[in-house]
Each structure stands twice: as structure tokens, then as C-alpha cells.
Design a protein around this nucleic acid. Sequence first.
DNA 1: CTGTGTGAAGGAGTTCACAGCG
DNA 2: CGCTGTGAACTCCTTCACACAG
Lengths: 218, 218
Amino acid sequence: MPYRSIPRMVIKRLPLYLRILDNLIKRDVEIVSSRSLSEITGFSAEQIRKDFAYFGAFGTRGSGYNTEYLRERILTIIGLNRQTSVIIVGMGHLGTAISRYNIAKNPYINIVGLFDRDPQVIGQKIFDLEVKDAKQLKDFITEAKIKVAIVTVPAECAQEVVDELAEGGVTAILNMAPVRLQVPKGVHIHYADLTIEIHSLIYYSSETERDIEELEAL
Amino acid sequence: MPYRSIPRMVIKRLPLYLRILDNLIKRDVEIVSSRSLSEITGFSAEQIRKDFAYFGAFGTRGSGYNTEYLRERILTIIGLNRQTSVIIVGMGHLGTAISRYNIAKNPYINIVGLFDRDPQVIGQKIFDLEVKDAKQLKDFITEAKIKVAIVTVPAECAQEVVDELAEGGVTAILNMAPVRLQVPKGVHIHYADLTIEIHSLIYYSSETERDIEELEAL
DNA sequence: CTGTGTGAAGGAGTTCACAGCG
DNA sequence: CGCTGTGAACTCCTTCACACAG
């Protein structure tokens, strides 16, 4: 099965399909059509079919897709078929929230390490995990062969932390600090920058007004 | 000044330019080239110039762009030239983190309301804001003419909250709950779904292995 | 000679239209 | 018929190449 390079945009959508399938399977739904997935996701039905076609045709014409099989397929593509170990660096408000949040409960993800450099925070327990000293970070990720990390430290420390992660063998980083960072080739960094999200959202909050201006200009 | 419809992708990049300009101006940098912005952002210099061209040419050939003027221009486009009032609904870990986080400190954003329906949480103070009862939500947004809201309630309640927001006149919503929601036409919803971010990141964490497989297949 | 501004080319992603199977 | 699978058309975004201004 040659995974012929799946477009970036498709990869972005897969985790959403995955979650929906999880819900459907929980409700014992065995077959789902691209049409109903379209209603749930807001993506067009054709697009959904195209997305699925990237990893091999397997729908049943006339009825739809087998939910279990589809989920298996998506899990394999993403690489979630075995639980992935993830660490969080930075146990401020945001890091703490994430470690207690849905992510920590997601069946495909296993949060195995929490780090901070504040002595006040080190040693605190979150669920069954104790916050470790950031000094142990590099050893930990090397030994445990951690590949995925979430960075929730202040902007000033983020580059430093990311450098260490990269040296320790981490290949995928979710950076929540409001800075753009340098990473060596082969390391992937994604930005989840809430301030930026809000700012671009604010543009749309007054779009209606802008639309009216535009209409009037015609 | 006719804002001839600025492409979606450009809007996404503007807030990042804005932040960088803020930093440059703080360091008394008066001129910046597309080249150096390219190094900071990772976007190509041509793209940056094109982005700026969408809201009128104003760089000085040979030297670069005036940081102050550029910032003013971007603020106007996004609609941040006057502070925007934002509310947060759902004061769980995530909502609390956000209300204490950078967003709360951003000079262009003013968090003016926090809501929850848990009596234990109502009345708590975060900075100088008291958490209000979610029952007051609709009245509050109507009176204060709130246009932008962040939703950090559990997935099960999110649709309900969003319906209320839309009825109360909110036109832009950042949903952090792990569900896709229905909104009436004219209301914009953005999703900041950390679980999905992590999942798609995990795909890339083993991309190197995948690349090798692909190379071997040739 | 540096750095902006921009048409033209190229690439990526989405929608259309319809063929084909159950 | 209903729903999948997919080339072709289209739209949107990015990169290239180069003219031009300070």
C-alpha cells in the first residue's frame, strides 16, 4: 500500500473525520455516506470522497462507507494505530489546562511527561503525573524516544526549549507561545496561537459592515 | 480607500505581521524590509510584498517599509484600530487559562465578560473581572453590543451557547470545544481544536519514516 | 545596487459533471 | 435510483522573473 503523498489539506481534515467516526461507532452506526459526513463537517461531499480516495477506494456504492474500516484506515494513515506519547513543556495556566483537558483524555494520545523550571511547580501532581524539572527534559525525551511535544512556555523561553527538544529527537512540536521559531530540517512545528486566531477573527466580526460598503461602492 | 477583497490567506498572516511590527517598534526600528520579515516569519519575501500590496503600495524602494505606518495600516484592515471587546464563555481550565493568558494582555483586545453556569465558579474574580452567570449572557451581549466571543464550554453545551451568542448579535466566534457547530449565515466561526492539531501533528512526527519508505519504493 | 511592485507562470485545493457499481 | 469514484474545469495561492525607483 503506497501512501502516495497525501495533500496537506487532507491531513488537516483526517482528525476531524476520526472524531466523527468515533462518535458514530459509539452509537453503533455501521455505515455512513459522504453526504451525511458533509452535513456534520461542512465540507462538500465530493471533497470527502476525494479525501478518502487518497488512501484507497473502499466505499460501497449505493450505501456508503463502513465506519469501523474507515476509522482503522485513518488511524493507520495518521499513525495513531498505537498510542502516541506526548510531553508538555511549561506548566503555566495554559499547559496545566491542556494536561487536564480533552487531550489528556483522548484515547489515541498518552501524555507521559510534564515539565517546568519553576521550583514551586516542580513536583506538583496532575492526575497521576508529577511535574518534572525542565533540566531533566533532554534525558527524558532521549530515553523515552519522545517524538511529539507541546510547548506552553513564555515566548522568551520558547526557542531555547524547542532547540532542546529537537536535539533530543523530537520531530513534531505544537508551539502555543506567541513567537515564530527556528527548527532544524526534519522537525515539524505547528503554531496554535490564540491571539492570532482572535485577531483574524476580529477581521470577520465586522465583515458584514465591510460587505455593505463594498455593495454600496458598486 | 476601497478594500478590494483581501484574500483569506492574507488575513491569516496579518496578525503575525502586526505582532512583529509591535516588537520592532518597541525596539525603535523604523524601517523593515520584506527580506527581514521573511526571515522572521518564514514566508517568502515576494509573498510579504504581495500581501502589503493588497492594501496599497507604500514601501520605499531601496530601503523598506515604515514600521509605524505599516502597523497603522494593518490595524485598520483588521479592525483593531479601536480596542475590541471580547467575552469568554466557559470558565473551566481552558477558559480560565485564556482569560489570564496573553490574550488578556493584548493591547488590542479587551476582555469584558466571563461566563459560566456552575454556581461554584460564578462570582470568582479573575484580574478585575467577576465571572457572571451564563443566564445573563444574552442580555449582556445585547446591551454591550459584543461582536466577538470565545467558547470554552464542554462539547455538549457548545451548540446551545453558540445559538445564544448568535441570537444576541455576536458575529465572530472562536470555538475551542471539540465539535463542529451550526451557525446562521453572517456569523463566522473558527475552530481552535487542540486535539485535532495534535493528531495532525502526529502524522508529521513519523513523516520521516514515511519518506524513507517512499524513497525505498522508487 | 538594494529593495519594492507586479504581471505571468506554476502549483495546490476545490467544485463540477458524470460514469459506473450495488 | 443512490452513492461512490474521478477526470476536467476552475479558483485560489505562491513563486518566478523582472521592471523600476531611491
